[in-house]
Amino acid sequence: MMAEVRPNDPVDLVAAMASGDSGAPLNAFYAQYASTVLALLMKMLGSREEAEDILQEVFVELWRRAPQYDSSRGSVVAWVVTVARSRALDALRARTRRHGDKQQQFFSERHGLGTDGGRPDVLVSSTRWHQALRQAFKRLDEDQRAVLELSYFLGMSHSQIAEALNLPVGTVKSRILAGMRALRTMLPIIHRSMRV
């Protein structure tokens, strides 16, 4: 028999979805993550209409994959973001096949962090958590942020990044590692700042 589902516990919600419940647990899960996923998709795709379409695909896929989610391998938000990123990259690749790669500009030029000011659809409830995260990420070294943005948000491999930036592959790898280490050290700082 399934234990009681705590609506604020994402692991409980995923477990309930895994058992086939597409009612209240799915609604609560959607309420918790949809606006964040939509923001990520908008950043990656630059089109509201396409982002809304992919958002739908992402949540259907999350529901299908719920039985495979393993909390020992990562947090729920990491799982959600991984699925969303993967679907957005599929859409970007399909777009590239249709139109060539001319429209693929650097993510940092189009969608740099903290460039949402004044958007009418930005939720007023943007949390201190999001603000703290963005402030922290702005402190990332510019070179490290560039390679992370190209790899994570545009799906480029280290060799593609090396070619695009005219850098040795070893330098790209070193910057990715340094950037990931920096990100890892920022999270506890953000958590602490939220307790103040």
């Binding site: 958002l55 999001h130 999270l187």
Partner: peptide
């Protein structure tokens, strides 16, 4: 896992956007 959580935090740091009421 630590690295995945860190990059997921980066990816979830954008200003959340209101979704269409139809999507759910």
């Amino acid at each position: 896992r630590d690295f995945q959580d860190s990059i997921a935090a980066l990816a979830s740091s954008f200003e959340p956007l209101e979704t269409s009421p139809k999507t759910l």
